[in-house]
Simulated assay, not measured.
Amino acid sequence: MTAAQTAEMASMSEAETIALAYEEAAGGDARRALQQAIEDVLILEAKLAIAERMVSHGYTRGGLSGGGA
Rank of each mutant, 00 (worst) to 15 (best):
M1G: 10
T2C: 01
T2H: 04
T2S: 08
A3P: 05
A3D: 03
A4Q: 10
A4W: 06
Q5N: 06
A7F: 10
A7H: 15
E8I: 00
E8A: 12
M9I: 09
M9N: 11
M9G: 02
M9R: 10
A10Y: 02
M12N: 00
M12Y: 00
M12H: 03
S13I: 00
E14M: 09
A15V: 06
E16K: 02
T17S: 13
I18F: 02
L20C: 04
L20I: 03
L20N: 13
L20D: 15
A21K: 13
A21C: 04
Y22F: 12
E23M: 05
E24Y: 09
A25M: 10
A25R: 13
A25N: 13
A25E: 15
A25I: 10
G27I: 06
G27L: 01
D29I: 07
R31I: 08
R31N: 14
R31P: 01
R32S: 01
A33H: 00
L34A: 09
Q35P: 02
Q36A: 11
Q36T: 04
Q36R: 02
E39I: 15
L42F: 15
L44E: 15
A46M: 14
L48Y: 04
L48E: 07
A49D: 12
A49M: 09
I50C: 06
A51H: 09
A51E: 11
M54E: 14
H57N: 12
Y59G: 04
T60D: 09
T60S: 06
G62F: 02
G62L: 00
G63P: 03
G63V: 02
L64V: 05
S65W: 09
G66T: 07
